[in-house]
């Protein structure tokens, strides 16, 4: 049964990854990153169950904390960029190039 959870986790992770690559709105990109993190959490929880100890759940807990911190900072950055450039598209912020 745990195999199904892990495959689901892999599927969600891949979808999130594709989302990061194809979406241009920085906020949506962020959401896709969150989706990838959640997929990882599912894998951790499943492994905890597979191995019969709670370490996986503890790590999933820490991942949530880190994700929360990341969202706060990431969104603050997006707001700052939007304030100066009037745009939330990641493609518009492409000054650092050849």
């Amino acid at each position: 049964m745990t195999t199904h959870y892990l495959v689901l986790s892999a599927l969600l992770f891949a979808i999130g990854g594709v989302g990061v690559l194809v979406r241009r709105n920085a906020i949506v990109v962020f959401m896709c990153v969150e989706l990838m993190l959640n997929a990882c959490n599912l894998a951790f929880v499943t492994f905890a169950r597979q191995n019969g100890n709670l370490d996986g759940q503890v790590i999933a807990f820490f991942v949530m904390i880190v994700a929360a911190a990341e969202v706060v900072i990431g969104l603050a950055i997006i707001v700052t960029i939007f304030r100066t450039r009037r745009s939330a598209s990641v493609d518009d912020a492409s000054l650092l190039k050849y």
């Binding site: 990061v20 241009r24 912020a93 050849y98």
Partner: peptide, 17 residues
């Protein structure tokens, strides 16, 4: 070669992925 540095984050992310 430097044309690879398009400045688009998504290109870089694609290569990482």
């Amino acid at each position: 070669l430097r044309r690879i540095q398009t400045g688009f984050v998504r290109s870089y992310a694609l290569s990482i992925f």
